[in-house]
């Protein structure tokens, strides 16, 4: 019987070995930014699903049941502000931690995002360590 080679890397989930990975929904219309952040989070052991606009994000938040939502602001179909409003208005999703990740970081954008119900604001590209800390803190 041939011996199977050992895997070079053993990946642990963010919550530790043996637990389910944290589910993160990323709502972002830019495919390359979405894929990059998703890959970075996957490499850290998170389970990432994505939506291409706010409308898809709201629907996926209800059906996929993420533990954290990352939200862009300027998107087609439904923007991030309206998506956050909808998530906060629905009892099934109102409790979700929502972190905005936006290239637009003026005081006005930050204030509007907060008023809509965002918990934290990250400027693109987000600092991965800070983002991971925020996700883990929110899920604890």
């Amino acid at each position: 019987m041939s011996e199977q080679p050992l895997k070079k890397l053993k990946r642990l989930t963010p919550q530790g070995s043996g637990r389910e990975p944290i589910r993160v929904l990323y709502v972002e219309d830019s495919a390359v930014i979405r894929d990059t952040i998703a890959r970075l989070l996957e490499l850290k052991g998170y389970k990432v699903n994505y939506a291409k606009n706010g409308q898809e994000g709201v629907e996926l938040a209800q059906s996929w049941k993420p533990q954290v939502v990352l939200m862009d602001l300027r998107m087609p179909v439904m923007d991030g502000y309206n998506a956050i409003n909808e998530l906060r208005a629905n009892p099934a999703t109102s409790h979700l931690p929502i972190f905005v990740i936006s290239a637009w970081s003026s005081k006005k954008e930050r204030t509007q995002a907060k008023l809509a119900g965002a918990d934290e604001f990250f400027v693109k590209p987000p600092d991965l360590n800070r983002l991971i800390e925020a996700i883990n803190r929110a899920v604890e």
Partner: peptide
């Protein structure tokens, strides 16, 4: 271009 970067990411996975 951005699609090329995505192809790299997909290949990485």
């Amino acid at each position: 271009d951005s699609q090329g970067l995505r192809l790299l990411l997909n290949a990485h996975k």
